[in-house]
Amino acid sequence: MSVTQQHLLDAYRALTLGEPAPPAPGTHDRRAVREPSDERRSRAGRHGLRGALIRWRRRPT
């Protein structure tokens, strides 16, 4: 069964059960590709702040 056929079957089931139709195939591809890079970017930001605080604490007085 192809992706299109599965989507049509799911949409038909949702219609008969009175539920919202599922998103079309490929709708969230861009977000799925972007999420890992966003995660890496946020991790780098956290460690960057942590490193800056550690360096600030260790600076000579």
Rank of each mutant, 00 (worst) to 15 (best):
H28A: 07
A24F: 10
A11L: 05
H28L: 11
G45I: 04
T4D: 12
R50F: 09
D38G: 06
R41D: 08
A52T: 09
P20H: 02
V3P: 00
S42K: 11
G51S: 05
W56H: 13
A24C: 07
Q6G: 04
L9W: 08
L8G: 01
R55N: 07
E39C: 05
D29T: 08
L9C: 05
V3I: 12
E19C: 05
R31G: 02
D38P: 00
Q5F: 07
T27C: 01
R55P: 00
P36M: 02
A32T: 07
H28V: 06
R40F: 03
R30C: 05
R55V: 08
R50G: 06
S42P: 00
G51C: 01
P20S: 04
Y12G: 03
H7Q: 05
P25W: 01
T16D: 08
M1V: 10
R46M: 07
T4H: 08
H7A: 01
A44H: 09
E35P: 00
S2T: 15
G26A: 01
P25S: 03
A44T: 09
A52N: 10
L8A: 12
R43C: 07
A44W: 08
A24D: 07
L9A: 15
P25T: 01
A44I: 06
L49N: 11
T27D: 03
L53G: 10
R55F: 02
H7K: 00
Y12W: 14
P25G: 01
S37E: 14
E39D: 15
S37P: 01
R30Q: 14
P36V: 03
P23Y: 03
I54W: 07
A11V: 15
P23T: 02
E39S: 11
G48E: 06
V3Q: 05
Q5S: 13
D10Q: 11
E35M: 13
R34D: 06
P60I: 01
E35Q: 14
I54P: 00
E35F: 08
D29M: 02
Q6E: 12
P60R: 09
G48M: 03
E39L: 13
P20C: 02
R43N: 11
S37W: 13
R43Q: 15
A32F: 06
L9K: 14
A24S: 11
R31W: 12
I54Y: 04
D38W: 11
R58P: 00
T4K: 09
L8T: 03
